[in-house]
Every structure is written in C-alpha cells, then in structure tokens.
Design a protein around this nucleic acid. Structure first.
Length: 306
RNA sequence: CGCGGGGUGGAGCAGUUUGGCAGCUCGUCGGGCUCAUAACCCGGAGGUCGGGGGUUCAAGUCCCUCCCCCGCAA
C-alpha cells in the first residue's frame, strides 16, 4: 500500500518507523518547516524529517499544506494518508486525495482530550488512564470515527514527557494493527460520543504559574503534566524555580506554605487541600536535580510562603 | 556572530568584585551515645577549583583561548 505520512515531533517517529518496518511504501513525508531553535537560533529539522531523510524518503515542508502542499500531495498519489501530531489542519480538499482516507494516530482515549496537547491535559486533569486512538480523519479537529484504541495507566509521578515517549511506542503498535485490519477489511468505524468529548487548549507558558490554593491533586497534575514544557514554576528572588515532578502527600497547612525544606525530608508545600512533595526541580541556569540535592545548596526556610 | 546563567572532594552550593593557608550543607569511612534511629557527639579520608596558555613573589580569583552544561527568546 502506498502511503504518505504526516507528522512532526518525536511522538510521530515510532509510527513512521513502524510503517517502514511493516513494508508499506512510504512515498513521501510531510512535516513542519525547519524552525530556528535552541541557542544560536539554529534552523532545526523536525524529528520526523530527520527520520524520513535517514530512510531516503522524500520530505515536504509546506508552511501551510492547505495552501501550498496540495499539488505535491496529489503528485505522490497516496492510497492512504497517515498522520501523527502533524501540527497543521487538513482541508477537505486534502482529505479527499487518498482514496482509502486519512488515518490519524491521536494520543488520547477519544472523545476525551481532542486538541494538540492531549497527553499533558490527561495528566493535568488527573486522569488515571491515558491511551492512543486511531481514527479516520474528517474536517473537524479530532472528531472523526474511531478505529482502534490502546490504554495505559498513568503513573503517579509520571511526567508528560515520559508518558509521551511511552504512548509513541504504543501508538506505533496500534497503527500497525490498524492498517493490518484495514487491509483485512475487519475494521469497524465507531462514531465518537459527542456528549463525552472534551477539547483542550494548546499549552501556554502562563499555565506554569502554580496556584497552591488548588488541591494537591491538581497541583501535582500541573507539575507533572507541564513537564517538559512549559513547566510549572514558582518565583524566587533569584528567578523562577521550575517544579518538574511531584506527588501528593498527607500533610496540610496554609496553602503555598513550605512545610518542609531540607535534604532529609525533602520539599513539601501545602495546597488548598493536602500538600505536594516536590521530587525534582530546576534552578535558574542550572540543570534538573532531585529536590533533596537542590536543598543541600539552596537554603529554603520552612514557613516561607510561595 | 540573538540574549543570559553555569562548570570548585561522591551530591548540591559559597568563595571570584578588592589575587594571599579551599569553605558550607550532605554523603562516605572509623569511633561514641541511645531500647532504638534517617537523630546527636567525636574523628578521618577524599579536590591538578572544566582543559590549555599568559601576568604575578603568589591565581579558584586577573588576561587570552578551547571544551562542556543550562535557561530565555523563537
């Protein structure tokens, strides 16, 4: 089967690799244009581009595929399109090109968490389970009929980055199974229950501001769910301290109060309900470290209000 | 040449402004105290201060250069 793949970040790479490994003819790959990134603002190719190039697959990077990618896509004559975190919305014109349709690998248990940051929001909202759903794309955003799904437990201290990595592999496996059954003609299309759907917004830096008057569960979700980007953080005199990983704990106090802060008992901060234990932090200019290590070199008084 | 922070015993930091015996909180090893302990007391080991070059009687500290790490902005 002749396939065109569309994807951009690391999450999409295992799916692309799986298509190749399964022996499908990947005629071309669409991905976001190289962007200035990191120190020095160097132009950086997306992970999917790097992967495609390594396999000698033609890469297309239209700024807007709806506007200037249509002809290239048509010329590739795909029988099927597969997308995974591509980052651009496809027009009906594009969706109509592949005769077998467009299959999307979406990192949530649809219809929950439609949108571009489903994994972060699953953690943010305190979900116990996350997953991947394969679906037929239609004109809406993540609204098409579902095909197959795979579930996994979200770990108590698991971060968005870690869960993303796991789901990317689960997604690749699910995609493989989906295509197998598509060819065998045993796929069922399951419409999404609109009553249960949630649509989550894109992540923004402002979401990192921690409000300790919320419950420990919500604060924990914010800290773990926003890692590695944009990350929850609290202001300190020397700059913002990123809180990278946390779990809940049974203590209490005035919300925002540092209940403990020493290398022995760690860093515990009171929330509106119960408290969170901060497991991992990153100081301004420093690297990630366990909270206990941070406290060996940075005095923090118990009783301080954040 | 986009802006900025940093590299000091095993971990995390101070010391660099104004050169002058390398320090703090832990860990580790040995001993003590205790019913007991991640607690407390006593003692010890462990560092070519990221690499190279230079200035100086003397460089972690000043000058030049290279390497590595991190944040911001995108």
């Amino acid at each position: 089967m002749r396939i065109v793949f569309m994807g951009t970040p690391e999450f999409a790479v295992p799916s692309l690799e799986r298509l190749i490994a399964d022996g499908y003819e990947v005629a071309g790959v669409f991905t976001q244009p190289d962007r200035p990134k990191g120190r020095g603002n160097r132009l950086t190719p997306s992970p999917v581009k790097v992967c495609a190039a390594a396999h000698g697959i033609p890469v297309f990077q239209p700024e807007r595929i709806r506007r200037d990618g249509v002809e290239d896509l048509k010329a590739l004559r795909p029988e099927l399109c597969v997308t995974a975190a591509f980052g651009q919305i496809l027009s009906q014109e594009i969706l109509d090109i592949p005769p077998m349709g467009n299959i999307n690998v979406h990192a949530s248990l649809l219809p929950r968490h439609r949108g571009s940051a489903p994994i972060a929001h699953a953690i943010l909202q305190g979900d116990k389970k996350a997953g991947v759903t394969t679906m037929m794309m239609d004109k809406g955003i993540d609204t098409g009929d579902m095909l197959l799904r795979a579930e996994t437990e979200i770990g108590e201290t698991e971060t968005c980055g870690e869960l993303t990595e796991r789901l990317s592999r689960i997604g690749a496996e699910l995609l493989s199974e989906t295509l197998k059954r598509l060819e065998a003609g045993t796929l069922e299309r399951i419409p999404q229950n609109e009553a249960e759907m949630t649509y989550d917004p894109m992540l923004e830096k402002e979401m990192g501001e921690v409000d300790f008057s919320r419950t420990a569960g919500q604060v924990r979700g914010q800290i773990n769910g926003l890692n590695p980007w944009p990350c929850a953080s609290v202001p300190l005199p020397e700059g913002r301290l990123k809180l990278l990983r946390a779990c809940e704990t049974d203590e209490g106090g005035e919300p925002g109060t540092v209940l403990r802060a020493d290398p022995k008992s760690g860093l515990i901060i009171a929330c509106g309900e119960r408290a969170v234990r901060i497991l991992e932090v990153q100081a301004p200019g420093g690297k990630k470290m366990r909270a206990e290590d941070y406290l060996r070199g940075h005095a923090m008084q118990a009783g301080t209000r954040l």
